[in-house]
Design a protein around this nucleic acid. Structure first.
Lengths: 151, 151
DNA sequence: TATTGTTATACTCTATAACTATA
DNA sequence: TATAGTTATAGAGTATAACAATA
């Protein structure tokens, strides 16, 4: 379930807007995936496979249990969107690749997932830069790039 | 699964930072809920019950299927965190209320979910206002309040 | 007949524990 | 013995369809 919009006790305006933003983002992501018959997790995994990736690396990147990734990959494979291949040297290891169909589907997903582009389109280029800086700082990343606070 | 961090094809910096922000928010939410033995959805529902709420209203607010809400409420009830009550006039309808224990648990959840407060704490008060304005505009809400673009 | 909520069912995500094959 | 990945299993979220009770 996406985190729902709505009031939550004693939040400040800033906290509330963050909540709404995250909610809108999550819902848009799920909707875009669903239109292609994908779950959020499946779209996610598909999106990471820009190149041949070992199961272990995929697991580490996703930050969840290996058995979980096994199943998601199995479902994607059943849909013909990815393939498991042998690692050239270590026969224990598997490498996952997108099939052409998988790449095509993911491209469609990206086109369909308009939220980030739309969000940016609502802002001037100066505002875009400023938003990036502020979000980065909010996450705890400090100052991003040159001219960070020139607005 | 939380949307994972990581590169996704051809995103701009701004798109990427949005992604990271949403990811961090979602993970923090899930972690805070998990520490209290709650799923994201359960914490969510519990948080909405600041007052007696009909199932139908809850369902509308969450934007998901009614059967789904039924089950989440059933699990919360089994944990003693909410109660189902009769509607005074319409005997078809049920109203959900938090128990004292439910309120206590949700208070603990809010204390535990530090992400929004921490994010804000990384910013000056002027930056906080600016971030609110930009996020609101990015969602499509237009100008929020007075002094929106004075930075 | 229409509405409120539940039940039955099926699929997916998720984790833990036990397992196989390989190193 | 340690590592890569899978299988078995269980709990939870989600939706669809069918249903009961009430309006």
């Amino acid at each position: 379930m996406a985190i729902p919009s709505g009031p939550a006790s004693a939040w400040t305006d800033a906290e509330r807007v963050m909540f709404d933003f995250v909610d809108a983002y999550d819902r848009a992501y799920e909707t875009a995936a669903g239109q292609l018959g994908l779950s959020k997790a499946q779209a996610c995994v598909l999106g990471r496979l820009t190149s041949r990736t070992a199961m272990g690396d995929l697991t580490a990147e996703l930050g969840c249990d290996a058995s979980n990734v096994t199943q998601i990959v199995t479902r994607l494979e059943a849909k013909g969107l990815v393939q498991r291949e042998q690692h050239p040297h270590d026969r224990r290891s598997r490498q996952i690749v997108r099939t052409p169909k998988g790449s095509q589907v993911y491209t469609r997903f990206e086109r369909s997932f308009e939220f980030p582009r739309a969000a940016i389109a609502h802002l001037t280029s100066r505002e875009q830069k400023h938003l990036s800086t502020l979000l980065h700082k909010a996450i705890g990343g400090g100052i991003t790039g040159p001219g960070a606070f020139d607005a």
